[in-house]
Design a protein around this nucleic acid. Structure first.
Lengths: 275, 275
DNA sequence: GGAGCGCTGTATCGTATGTTACGTATTTTG
DNA sequence: CAAAATACGTAACATACGATACAGCGCTCC
């Protein structure tokens, strides 16, 4: 049973020609506000012509555009009446494949942050922001993108940020550059990689401060780490989820940025100028 | 400070003549929906004439009726963006520095999935799983790690998965390998990169099916995309958040894996054997 | 490689909508 | 109580909006 227009679109979008599909996608993206504006605004937002918009609403079963808008307004009105039933999509009508995954992920994040004190996060942020030395980031097979993501952001707001990529032998050589004043951020979740462990140990021996992002079972690298962030990774999937760690990373990026704001803002402006 | 139109009305309703006061009262009674309808409907609902409605909105300081409607729409849009959770749930017990960021991120994810139908996700997963051709992934400056993350997983369960890295000229050369049977997954959020747009256009011309991960404002690449996933990115930080898109990516990875389970399981076992 | 079909945009049209002018009613004030 | 000022509705107007006809283009299927 299809109750609202969003579902109706999702149901039929597969059978739509390219132009109308673009209309559908822009409507979904900012649902339902675009649909309440004029045909001209809708069409230009979607990058198609007005007739395409009209054909789109006609395909949805509406006689004309005003009738379509009335439909959207009725939905909105019903929604505003009962704020409790705020869900546009009925609360997971299809015991579908999506919801359990999302639910588990949200739980993971709440759990992760529950075990993570503001204090700890602030300490790490401060350590990264004070920039007494260099910052290196590295990750495992599936978590290396997280290291890259964090490096990409940090590199904008401060110098001396390096992502360690490529072969094991490559980064081992970088050990020479590392010392007491430097920070090494490592991402390592199951199955923990021996190569990372060996690397972490050597860095530790050189006095490098290690910040470890790992899962709740703790990578063996925790033994050498100054700071350990343990994220929940369990989801109903064949794979572990790094989403919670990703959010922690973003939070940390935000915190560091805030601390460097005076400095960073100038840097960012300068960089904008270079574009 | 008066922030929304409802307050504005409450502030000035005392100084209004009878007819306009009736207009004000009917608007507040079913706020704001009546205001989004036509002047004629509004006037008859209030039991006054059209000009009275127009004088009413003029007294509120609007130049004309459409401008008044835009004001209401903007309010609604702002309301819908930050859903009820914030008003329902107490504003986060520990008012620490962490919570606002986490809260916003969780909201973003809920909001993103609310606009994302299971159907659409399933369609994309099927397209990726049927493997008629090759799968290419690429991302922008900050989103490329997401492309890498997804590529790293997909590459385990099926052959012919390629992440496009490095310089623009590098991937442009790969266009030769791409055709109708292939899929190109692009991550592009603000500020949208011209290089990606050009690449997407050329790929589209070659008949490549494009799956686009973007933000709610839709990258211009949406024009060429077969499937568009619009994630929320707004967080209280200097940076945009890619966390919602990350979770969608993980969900998609999970869905593809499930579809390929028969095949994939064998592959995974084989790969384990190679370690 | 050619014929047919379907999709999309341009240009035009009719109309519903917001706007304004004016006359009447109602209230206010001296 | 009278006169003026304000408020309100009717009716005519102009504009901008949605609707439609048509032609060009690309795609698919013989």
């Amino acid at each position: 049973m299809i109750s609202n227009i969003a579902e109706l679109i999702a149901d039929r979008i597969g059978a739509m020609p390219a132009g109308e599909r673009r209309a559908a996608q822009t409507l979904i993206a900012n649902y339902p506000m675009i649909g309440l504006k004029t045909v001209a605004e809708f069409s230009s937002a979607a990058g198609v012509s007005s007739p395409t918009i009209l054909r789109f609403v006609a395909r949805l079963g509406f006689q004309n555009y005003p009738e379509f808008q009335s439909g959207l307004q009725d939905e909105l009105a019903a929604q505003l009446q009962s704020p409790a039933i705020r869900t546009l999509n009925p609360p997971s009508p299809n015991g579908g494949t999506v919801s359990p995954m999302l639910e588990a992920t949200l739980d993971n994040m709440r759990e992760t942050f529950r075990h993570l004190s503001d204090r700890q996060l602030a300490d790490i942020a401060t350590r990264l922001a004070e920039r007494r030395g260099k910052t290196f980031l590295i990750g495992g097979r599936f978590t290396d993108p997280l290291a890259r993501y964090m490096a990409a952001h940090l590199a904008v707001i401060q110098p001396d940020v390096f992502h360690l990529a490529g072969q094991e032998s490559m980064w081992r050589d970088r050990l020479i550059d590392m010392g007491k004043r430097d920070v090494l951020v490592i991402f390592d979740i199951r199955r923990y990689q021996g190569s990372l462990l060996r690397f972490a140990e050597k860095a530790h021996q050189r006095g490098v401060q290690i910040v470890l992002f790992t899962d709740q079972w703790l990578s063996p690298i925790a033994r050498f780490a100054r700071h350990v962030i343990a994220g929940r990774t369990a989801v109903p999937s064949a794979w572990d989820s790094s989403a919670a760690l990703f959010v922690v990373a973003e939070t940390l990026i935000g915190a560091v940025t805030r601390q460097l704001e005076a400095d960073g803002a100038r840097r960012i402006r300068e960089m904008e100028g270079l574009r």
